[in-house]
Design a binder for these strands. Structure first.
Ligand SMILES: [Mn+2]
Ligand SMILES: [Mn+2]
Ligand SMILES: [Zn+2]
Ligand SMILES: [Zn+2]
Lengths: 149, 149
DNA sequence: TTACTGATTGATATCAGGTATCATTGAATG
DNA sequence: CATTCAATGATACCTGATATCAATCAGTAA
């Protein structure tokens, strides 16, 4: 009945290493969660993850998500309907172009929204320390699918 | 035991009129909710409102909030801690400068973030239809209060 | 290898914010 | 007034998440 610690995908291993570097232990439930996340290509909810991993306690699912978000490996995505999803984060700070039709999200990096914000806020003596931005619309493929009139 | 329909503040009356123009009835619970909101200067939660108006059913509180948001008279404010608050909205689309220290929020109107977004997204063939933006930082008075070194 | 110890886990309870149901009430209209 | 359907509120329920806490296990030291 001894569970074997199997090697996960390279991405999963990398995520686990980062957690270890931060002082968190390499546990079986954690491995399962991280591996499942590493395999996902789209944003997901905590519940979806839990359905996929019924052997992992719900609390542990949420604890792992929080850990990964705090460590910058996971980002939270606010859908237009107000639901909060999670998604692997490969880069630093960025935003999302969320397609309201197919649900896909593209990362929006290197835009100068930050500088813009800082400027416009500075004019009002407001010291910007952070922000939250989600962009909703239709992705290229969804446009192509229905535009051809 | 017949409740009297009292006249509310000018702002409350104006909000109610807008609701009536949209086909919603002028009811006693609605008046109470709208009046309470009109008196608030800061963002608040549904629960806070319910505590203030225990005679109004919880469901009605939420229904009224949704109505006012849909009608553009109330805006939802996403705090940095993830909590959702509500706040009177006097103008059209705008954003908030949220002070993480005192909790106040200033409206950010007339910034060109929208155009920026549309441009940067268009370059990626993404058709922007909406967005959500909250800006966090410190307001002028909170800076003044603690900066004097 | 084994012993130790605190981090981690999962069952459970609890919470916050919000929606669905539905019998009852009451605002608007004529 | 009488009618009628929008609105209400009690209740149950739901999603997403956290608090508790005894049991377990990963990492380290012996
Ligand atoms: Mn992201
Ligand atoms: Mn606002
Ligand atoms: Zn799409
Ligand atoms: Zn402030």
């Amino acid at each position: 009945m001894t569970m074997v610690r199997k090697r996960g995908s390279p991405l999963a291993e990398q995520l686990l290493e980062t957690l270890e570097d931060r002082g968190y232990r390499d546990t079986l439930p954690r491995r399962a969660v991280v591996q499942a996340i590493a395999e996902r290509e789209r944003h997901f909810t905590a519940e979806e993850l839990h359905e996929q991993l019924p052997s992992v306690g719900r609390a542990t699912i949420f604890r792992s998500l929080k850990l990964l978000v705090e460590s910058g490996m996971l980002c939270r995505v606010l859908l237009e309907d107000g639901n909060l999803h999670y998604q692997l984060s490969h880069r630093g700070h960025h935003h999302h172009l969320l397609c309201v039709q197919c649900g896909n999200s593209e990362d929006l990096v290197g835009c100068d929204i930050e500088d813009q914000l800082r400027q416009v806020a500075a004019a009002r003596r407001f010291q910007v320390s952070g922000h939250w931005l989600e962009v909703y619309g239709r992705c290229q493929s969804c446009q192509a699918l229905q535009q051809p009139a």
